[in-house]
Amino acid sequence: MLSTGALRAHLLAAGLAGPVATSREDSLRSYRLFAARDPRVTIGLEPERAWGERELLGLMADRCGVSPDPGRVTGGEVIDPELTLGALDAFAGRLRAVAARGAPVLFGTGHPHRLLGFYAGLADALSAAGCLVLTPAQGRCIDITTRFGVRMCNLDYVRGVALVREPGVRGAGRETGAHTHSPLPVRAALEGLADSGGPLPGLVVGDHGWVCGAGQLGIEAIGLAAADDPALFVGEAEGRVSVAVPLDDAVLSAHYLPLTRYVLNRACLSQ
């Protein structure tokens, strides 16, 4: 069993919390774009109220631990490991609740190279606990707008976790896929469930647009977010995201596996 102290040490050693790779410049740019309602940063969330840059900085200081000083405009960003630990406990609580009622769950990630193993471990445990892990709209084509133009992707699932791939990329079923913040994949998955008459998820677990897109549609969602991802924390503050866990979402994939063990233990789902 991984103790809270051991996980705190791991978060700091792996760069998941404490000083992280995100730059202050990237964080402030994201807050500025979110304040302007740029869809690349709101990622499926439609904020109920105006969020200015100063307000967002205050929120991110409160939820992530970044510096609240607007005069600090360069350098590296910091995430408070105590906030990460507290959010992981809340995250585990939502998994425990969904397992207790045996509700269907949908997993999806825009960071498959980094986070797929973390989510897959959770999916395995919830499936063993009697929850249906949903895999709707397999192979559906999704046109995702990027700064380089429109990119065609196909929805795929690996170990019960949704991701998108570019057409023609070999290796369906392998742990590779495209990086995306778009909410379109979760919308396609939910549309597929509606078209098939299948059950809607009682919980969506993921990151980026998977969480914000589901939460905006009124489906409970929990996920991970970096210091330059304000949308999930705004969604949490406004009540449309149940839990947003602050951590660096782009370190080596193996560094997330202790988080899986910790969360499953806290959720009483260890196998």
Rank of each mutant, 00 (worst) to 15 (best):
D26A: 15
F233R: 06
G173M: 02
D26C: 03
G197M: 02
E77F: 01
L16S: 09
T145I: 03
I144W: 01
P199F: 03
A237K: 15
V161L: 11
G108W: 07
L200N: 00
E77I: 01
G209P: 10
G149E: 07
E46G: 07
I142T: 04
C64L: 13
W210G: 04
G149C: 07
G173C: 12
A87F: 03
H113C: 01
Q271D: 08
P68V: 02
L106C: 11
V243N: 10
G239S: 10
H181I: 12
G235T: 01
T22Q: 07
V150R: 14
R94E: 15
L264M: 13
E236I: 04
E55L: 07
R174M: 14
C268E: 15
R174I: 06
G58S: 11
A90W: 02
T260I: 05
G15Q: 10
D62W: 08
L132M: 05
P39W: 01
L33N: 03
L116I: 15
V66D: 14
G218F: 12
A194C: 11
D143W: 00
A137K: 01
A9G: 14
F107C: 07
L115G: 04
P167K: 11
P68S: 05
T146A: 06
P136G: 11
W210K: 01
E166Q: 11
G130C: 10
G209R: 15
